[in-house]
Design a protein around this nucleic acid. Sequence first.
DNA 1: TTTGATGCAAAACGTTTGCACGGCA
DNA 2: TGCCGTGCAAACGTTTTGCATCAAA
Lengths: 165, 165
Amino acid sequence: MTRDIHKELSLFSEYLKKAGLKITNQRLLVAETIFRHPSHFTVDSLADSLKERKGEISRATIYRIVSILVESGQLTEHNFAHGVRYYEHIPVSEHHDHLVCLDCGIIDEFMVAEIEKVQTQIAQQHGFVLAEHSLNLYGRCIQWKDKGSCTRKSEKESAQKNGKG
Amino acid sequence: MTRDIHKELSLFSEYLKKAGLKITNQRLLVAETIFRHPSHFTVDSLADSLKERKGEISRATIYRIVSILVESGQLTEHNFAHGVRYYEHIPVSEHHDHLVCLDCGIIDEFMVAEIEKVQTQIAQQHGFVLAEHSLNLYGRCIQWKDKGSCTRKSEKESAQKNGKG
DNA sequence: TTTGATGCAAAACGTTTGCACGGCA
DNA sequence: TGCCGTGCAAACGTTTTGCATCAAA
């Protein structure tokens, strides 16, 4: 696990070097935090994680570093909803799609080879060269199904209250 | 075609009545313009269409009316990218997915029953009650494939320049 | 008449950018 | 040392909102 993080970090360092960019503490700290981070995050939640750890890094810098990581291919951008951008660290560049709970916001993952194959065919039929895709399923998760509401929902709401002024 | 628009408009009027909302000129004009509008649009492009026609309606009001239409189920919201929200009028509530050209921005549509079926199964397997989904394929369209660039791209860019001040 | 809709302008939101300072190479 | 990266604060573009006015019921 820790070994993977080192691997990812050195991949990032290599990318920086090749691109003629400097290796700074901020870049390494942001990258490391992302590589340790449970998959889906926003710049906002990332900034919080960084605050809890050691150095506090300015939003502007975080935005800049995150976009480098997207360019380096180690981070994927998601548009689950309007307003906030979600990011996801994909270590082995292993593709998958998402299930989002409309009640508590939890994000689950899945992968179906069949769908992937059909997508390529469709693109071809429509004269498109497929670059990427996003498939998001929105619904209510098992907690909601079982209890009529999600315990995670209240966590989410109080987190939002604390997060914003 | 015109008959369909009337049908949609009376559906909207009925919704307004049932919801205890008033039937105003602005609401009817916005709805009518949307129902005539070629499927995918933004509030910005909608405002332009309204300017060209008769009454100019304030952005605030357009936003408010558009969100009523989303609630009434006659309009679908899309998150193709960050920044702007796209909307789409779906007359017969016939679902389809989207192909977006990364070069010129053209939006194409498709529907595959097979994928729809698999999605429901996946949601069930993950303990989700499926509410809706979005499947977007991003790539390069046939124009780009044939000529190395899209003629639509320059149209899009000049439209953006004219649109913004 | 009463209540809700509208338009304006200002605020809010996430994100980007200009500029002076500081740190990597 | 030179140049790029950082942090701050201000700008940005889309969307929302408070409030006074106006119009549907």
